[in-house]
Amino acid sequence: MSSLARYLPPFVTIEKDKPQLMAVCPREKIREAVEHMVKQNFRFVTMTGYDDGQNLVVIYHFAFHPGQNVPEKGTIHLKVVVPKSDPKIPTVSDILPPAFLYEREIWEFLGVVFEGHPRLEHLFLTEDYPKHPLRKS
């Protein structure tokens, strides 16, 4: 098992550690997990969302940086999987200010609702765009 796992909160399950460490976090614990990473001074890189056919997946990417004074380099990914019938995840935009734009983008393209987000409005597409374009079927 990868030594990077010690940086993760205890309640996540490691999905794979090659080529990069990917851990799955239950959606109700994601705020706690993100806070855990922020406390250890990880750089928040970005958020990715995709539709894998059955579920919607949101990934939070974190990266090591020299300011942490740890020997490891590279990235750590936290994944949250939600069903299409109930696509809700608590927002992290108050813990991580840059997530404000990324969550808006993921809502716009995939329709994942970030509960508690202050302004879940269109960012890239027009206000009357009829659907979430990256949803499959």
């Binding site: 990266a63 940086h65 020299p66 300011g67 590279g74 840059p98």
Partner: peptide, 25 residues
């Protein structure tokens, strides 16, 4: 600069030592 997780010369000008060429060569 660190709280907003800015990148590149913008964040390096604020004293944050990070450059992907160095962080993950």
């Amino acid at each position: 600069a660190f709280k907003y997780h800015l990148v590149g010369p913008t964040v390096r000008a604020s004293g944050v030592y990070t450059d992907i060429r160095y962080d993950e060569p």
